[in-house]
Design a protein around this nucleic acid. Structure first.
Length: 510
RNA sequence: GGCGCGUUGGUCAAGGGGUUAAGACGCCUCCCUUUCACGGAGGAAUCACGGGUUCGAAUCCCGUACGUGCUACCA
């Protein structure tokens, strides 16, 4: 059977780490078996709908290279893919449940429910729920006469539909991640299925949709584990028991500093991104994402996949294809993991090293352009990228590590001024002359001429090589000095040495 | 409070009755490179605790502690 899985976020904001990982695990699972990856937008809470959130989801999946096969935008054979568009059906299904005696109308106002809780608290009950213990004391179609119920509905009195959960039933299922599960219905309340606005709650909607869309595997975060019995009951009451999907609940991604699952606000507090991409939140304001901070999608996806899963071999760097191939849902952990930003950066570093300069070009070029560097000579840009990439962890590091190739840097003369001597100045003046006369300009020649001359002048190589670096680069960093000189070209190299000496003399002259 | 899930180094983790308890990140020392980085060699865990079961337990069972999730007309 070819799997059909769905990623079902609600459009309430930017996608954060946990959401993207759920999407990724779904994708990896289904693609390994040649199945479909479906995006379903769960927009049943009209009060929480956020403009732009749906587009953000598409962009995010695209950036991660895990686009859905079916989605609200793309369509597909099981439309609609937006729950709000299925609204009439939910009501029909809710009514079906009422007819079969598995659900009922409830007219209680929020205030009345609060009063119930208060009463239960006073009675010392530990279960403060609207459920089998308390429903017969409330205002619903179980306690009201059919006539009265009908009347209230016709009058347009606001009401909801609640699932009538029978107590003392054992619900068993196999969770692909957690293993064999067994729970009783004693502690589950009479969940609202249909809200007063006739929109379904999550519980009704997932079941109806997963069934309608022929979803074979329902994967979601661990926070849904306790309500899975409700969903199973629903499948049973609808008579869909034999078409029930398999469940798996993924472990939570936890805050690095200890308590609770990672939330959208933690990024700012702890200094790392939680969103995949920039998100302009109505409440939080503009928040940068992994993408804007200079993460490659390859690294982001790789890092996410290893948060709660590994293939057991110790291998950590995986391409998307490799992940698809290696992924095994049985190896997904059943416990949460604290997010480690340092490790996330390590993955990015690994990917920058792993990709070729040509592959990196599309990511780096825009950064150079933003700095107004002259990037006309693409061959040269590629060379620069390949020369500095191993010292770049995040994409913006390329500016810091290679900016001196494009603009003449301000030389940190204090690095060399202390040991600067007349002999050294003479040495560099002679080097300028020597190199001036060379008719070819390549690495080995530059190196040998420099080192030979240093030896001639009784310098240890380092005594003059280090100053040369600082003169060309501006500071003590960067790739091999002669590679730098080579790429800089004769004119610029000699110019930098020349002006460097002058600056040095000016500084020491006083 | 009730119910569920979990617990191997600071973090991510392998390992599922007999191992010197892998590996990675981060940290520290050294080597290489007369820069930084890369690369290389090292350093740091009695597997939450207490009881069992067993010749033998990180591995199985029970309890405790701790963590975490759910307990909304939010998902």
């Amino acid at each position: 059977m070819v799997p059909r899985v769905r990623f079902a976020p609600s459009p309430t904001g930017g996608l954060h780490l946990g959401g993207v990982r759920t999407a990724l695990f779904n994708y990896l699972f289904t693609k390994k078996q040649g199945g479909q990856f479906i995006l379903r937008v769960e927009d049943t809470d009209q009060t929480r709908y956020v403009e732009g959130a749906e587009d953000y989801i598409y962009d995010c999946l695209d950036w991660c290279r895990i686009p859905p096969d079916e989605s609200p935008k793309k369509g597909g054979p099981y439309a609609p893919y937006r729950q709000s568009e299925r609204k009439p059906q939910y009501k029909a299904f809710a009514e079906k449940l009422i007819q079969s005696g598995h659900a009922y109308y409830a007219f209680d106002t929020p205030e009345e429910i609060e009063a119930l809780r208060q009463k239960l608290r006073e009675e010392g009950r530990d279960n403060l729920q609207y459920g089998h213990q308390s429903r017969m004391r409330m205002k619903n179609s179980l306690t009201l006469t059919p006539e009265k119920t009908k009347h209230l509905i016709e009058q347009g009195v606001p009401h909801v539909v609640r699932l009538k959960v029978e107590p003392a039933q054992t619900v068993r299922f196999t969770d692909l991640v957690k293993g064999e599960m067994e729970m009783t219905t004693d502690s589950v309340d009479d969940k609202v299925l249909l809200k007063a606005d006739e929109m379904p709650t999550y519980h009704l909607a997932v079941v109806v949709d997963d069934h309608a869309m022929k979803i074979t595997h329902t994967f979601r975060g661990e926070e849904w584990l306790p309500s899975t019995p409700v969903h199973i009951l629903l499948y049973k009451y609808f008579g869909w028991e034999n078409e029930m999907p398999q469940f798996a609940h993924f472990p939570l991604i936890l805050k690095p500093d200890g308590n609770g699952k990672l939330s959208k606000r933690d990024g700012e507090r702890l200094g790392f991104p939680v969103f995949a991409m920039e998100w302009n939140d109505p409440k939080l304001g503009k928040v940068l994402g992994f993408r804007e901070l200079g993460f490659l999608p390859e690294a982001f996806v790789n890092m996410l996949a290893l948060l709660g899963w590994n293939d057991g071999s110790g291998k950590e760097v995986f391409s998307l294809d490799e992940l698809v191939n290696a992924f095994d849902i049985n190896r997904v952990h059943s416990h949460g993991a604290k997010f480690d930003y340092e490790k996330a950066k390590w993955f990015n570093h690994e990917w920058i090293k792993k990709l070729t300069a040509a592959e990196l070009m599309p990511s780096v070029l825009p950064l150079y352009e933003k700095e107004k560097y002259n990037v006309d000579d693409r061959k040269k840009v590629e060379e620069i990228i390949s020369l500095v990439k191993e010292r770049c962890t995040l994409l913006p590091d390329f500016i810091e590590q290679s900016g001196f190739f494009f603009t003449r840097p301000k030389v940190q003369i204090d690095l060399i001024s202390e040991k600067w001597t007349n002999e050294k100045e003479e040495f560099f003046n002679s080097i300028i002359e020597k190199w001036e006369q060379m008719n070819s300009w390549e690495h080995d020649l530059l190196e040998s001429s420099f080192k030979d001359f240093a030896r001639e002048q009784k310098f240890k190589t380092g005594e003059v090589l280090f100053p040369l670096r600082v003169l060309l680069v501006g500071g003590k960093f960067g790739p091999g000095v002669f590679d730098i000189a080579r790429i800089l070209g004769k004119e610029e190299t000699l110019g930098r040495i020349h002006s460097g000496i002058r600056v040095l003399n000016d500084a020491l002259g006083e």
